Simulated scan of single mutants.
Amino acid sequence: MSEKIEKALILTELGRFEAARELLAEVLASEPEEALALARMADLCRQLGEYERALEFSASALRVTPDSIYVWRVRALSEFRLGLATSGEVSAGHRARAVEAARHAVELDPSSVDSLRVQATTQWDTDSTAALKLLDRALELDPDNVRVHVLRGLIFRWQRRGSDALARAEAAFREALRLEPEHSQALYELALITLVRGDLRTGTQQLRRVAELDPEYGDQVREQLERVDALSNSRTTRWAARVVDSQNKRRSGGFRFGRFAAIFVAIALIRGVAAGCSNDSPSPAHDYQYPTPPRIPSEFLHPPTFQPLPPDWRSNFPQLTIVTPVPPPPR
């Protein structure tokens, strides 16, 4: 690997994308078919949201190294993001090409957990059955893969219907948290499930924990807390109205005691429930509804690392371990 490419990788890890792009452009200006530079430029464009450019660079990289698993995954994720950003036949075309590129990566290495996960990501909302089968295979290879557990939970929560879907989603998120206790996406989804089950107090605590762990969830957490607060006030109003109505019905001769008792109970309910649902008993689950549309976490859009292959660099690239941030997907 050239010094400039190595430096570009470091800059990418630090989030200095434009500086990394300048270095890669310098390499490609002198060596237009430098496979590693083309691959990294493709992924850099993807991270910057320039998905069409990412496809252009990935196509150039595949002309040099047609069996690069990494590049096929970058291409799959770029097509996937374009599919999310468009609609109609255009979106369907991108989504189909995303699945095909991911499938090709799996064919090149059927034992790659990362490739299985990427293909499942491209199908998570269009063919959940196929996506779950891919994730089951991935867990056979790597039972402790947190991303696989979280994606599995998302599919059960958002895409599956049935009496056990919510329980299976919850189990997947809890397993992810067992493996990585501060995984913000798993905790956020678990908080929503807790709210759906009617336990507003615990769900609120979990949401606040998410905001502490990951500031990027700040807006989402605030939105959910506002919904919980509105729901709490609505419940309080309904309960107070029922108490007053009950007391009114029990008054037969205009007894003042009944009226005062009703007012006292109503005030107590308002203070108790509006304070944040401090009652430990869960409330009816159907009151809280999941936010829509579903959000696929940005971490699932990372193309995994380069694959180790024989010394012939044209067959693939040497293994690299790169963890880089990506912008969140569109809602």
Rank of each mutant, 00 (worst) to 15 (best):
L141H: 04
S68D: 04
R208W: 07
E212V: 13
R259I: 11
L24M: 09
A241P: 03
L225N: 02
A59W: 00
R95Q: 11
V228P: 02
L192N: 10
R160C: 11
S298M: 08
L38A: 04
E34K: 03
G15P: 12
D144P: 00
A262G: 15
A98R: 03
F17C: 01
Q159R: 14
A98W: 02
P328E: 11
N248G: 10
E56H: 07
D312R: 09
Q289G: 09
A76T: 05
L225H: 04
E6H: 12
S91N: 08
R227H: 09
R161D: 10
E189G: 01
A261V: 05
P325M: 08
P284W: 07
P110D: 14
E175W: 02
T65M: 03
V243Q: 07
P318L: 01
L9V: 08
A241S: 14
R178W: 06
L200N: 12
V210Y: 05
F17R: 07
D125Y: 11
Y188C: 02
E79L: 05
V196E: 13
R46T: 04
G88S: 08
S232M: 10
L48E: 15
V150Q: 07
G258W: 10
D67T: 09
L44G: 10
A186F: 00
T237C: 04
V71H: 03
S60R: 15
G49E: 13
D109C: 05
A266H: 10
E22Q: 12
A105F: 03
R21G: 15
T237M: 07
A42P: 02
Y290E: 15
A285D: 14
R208D: 14
A274T: 15
L82D: 07
L62H: 00
G198P: 04
V106W: 03
K249R: 15
D67Q: 11
Q289F: 08
R75L: 00
W158H: 15
L231E: 14
E34G: 00
S68M: 03
F255C: 04
I270L: 06
C277R: 11
A8K: 03
T236C: 09
F257S: 10
D280Y: 08
A61Q: 03
S232E: 14
V221D: 05
R16G: 05
I5H: 08
Q220W: 13
A176S: 01
D287N: 10
A120T: 06
F257N: 07
S234E: 15
A131G: 08
L151V: 08
L207F: 06
E180K: 02
L84G: 09
L190I: 01
R40C: 06
L48G: 11
M41E: 05
I5P: 06
Q119V: 03
R95E: 08
T202K: 14
L77N: 06
M41P: 01
V323D: 14
P294E: 12
F300P: 01
E3C: 04
A211I: 01
P330E: 13
R103M: 08
P284F: 05
